[in-house]
């Protein structure tokens, strides 16, 4: 068996605020093979973005990783020094963000920003650097790339800016790209274009992707496997098709039932009752229990991850199965 591009074990990131300890990420584990695309789905505040930042070692104080292991191409990241970690950021693992207007510096040309990203990791001649920039921009679908290097971010549309950001993130052909809702701020038609392109890019370059989104529909069109987060924990994971067809965790089932495309036309959409709990005061057992129809006394205990082949879930009463552990 080959070494996975990324292997995360028991990742735990806490924020030490005045009001108390916020357990934003609480024991997250997953593997990501080379070129694989994983969708990380959850409501806002479920810890998916903090998971992304943790992978790059970019959690701002008062937050920090308190436990767990992140292995990138077999190298442990959590014990690396700041500069060693920096040398890997952008080169082996990159990240893009939701709002392309805010990510690029409005006062520098696209070319300048790309060259800064190149210079962070290699000494390249001016001509070679330009060629690399042009190549990447063309690859992400920006026409007349060479001329556009001299343009400023405000001269691009939102979709084009996100493409530029993607090009910057892929400059060094990283093993892993963390994409934090990169299409949420864009028009639906452009969103579809970019999704398609990202899938091609991943296949072409072998870059594995973690696609963070609150929108199950968007992610499932792209990702080969899914991880559903709730209150800092992955509550269910598995191959996209199997998970959508046959969800085990009541929360996943609820998410799917609330998708228009997944239900028979004419039937009303269902919604999950209640709201996301505060990360400061989680219920002692299963965090989803207060909102769950299947809640019993057993749910005051923390459910462990039940594994079944490529699939896994944290629930005492999985959907479509009788109570207890599967065999």
């Amino acid at each position: 068996m080959t070494v996975p591009a990324l292997s995360v074990q028991g990742l735990t990131t806490h924020f030490f605020t005045r009001a108390g300890v916020v357990k934003a990420v609480d024991g997250v584990s997953f593997d990501l093979a080379q070129g694989e695309i994983m969708g990380l789905v959850g409501e806002s505040g479920s810890g998916k973005t903090v998971t992304g930042f943790s992978l790059l070692g970019l959690v701002d104080p008062p937050g920090r990783i308190v436990e767990g292991s992140i292995k990138l191409n077999g190298t442990e990241l959590t014990t690396l020094s700041g500069s060693a970690l920096r040398a890997r950021r952008g080169r082996e693992i990159s990240m893009i963000f939701q709002d392309p207007i805010a990510t690029l510096n409005p006062l520098l040309t696209i070319g300048q920003q790309m060259q800064l990203a190149i210079a962070a990791h290699e000494r390249l001649g001016k001509r070679a650097a330009l060629a690399r920039c042009t190549e990447l921009l063309t690859q992400v679908g920006i026409p007349s790339a060479e001329a556009r290097l001299r343009a400023y971010p405000h001269e691009f549309s939102g979709g084009m800016r996100q493409r530029v950001a993607i090009a910057i993130a892929l400059l060094h052909r990283p093993a892993v790209l963390v994409a934090d809702e990169p299409t949420t701020a864009l028009d639906v038609s452009i969103q579809a274009q970019i999704l398609l392109q990202m899938r091609e890019l991943a296949a072409e370059t072998g870059t594995a992707m973690i696609w963070i989104s609150h929108d199950l529909a968007v992610v499932s069109s792209l990702a080969t496997k899914l991880a559903v987060m709730y209150a800092g924990k992955i509550v269910e994971q598995g191959p996209t098709a199997a998970l959508l067809r046959d969800p085990r965790h009541p929360y996943t089932a609820g998410l799917i039932a609330s998708l228009p495309a997944m239900t028979t036309p004419g039937t009303p959409l269902t919604q999950i009752r209640g709201t996301t709990p505060s990360l400061l005061s989680l219920p002692p057992g299963c965090p989803f229990a207060p909102r769950c129809d299947k809640q019993t006394e057993a749910c005051v205990q923390k459910p462990a991850m039940t594994l079944d082949g490529p699939r896994g879930w944290r629930c005492f009463h999985p959907v479509g199965q009788t109570a207890g552990a599967p065999t």
Partner: peptide, 27 residues
Amino acid sequence: MLTDTIKFARAAGLSEATILRRHLLKL
């Protein structure tokens, strides 16, 4: 320093010195 511009620059592996000199000073 809290903006996504800086976060993105960090995610691209820019050193803090470069971020201060090229991004912060300009902004």
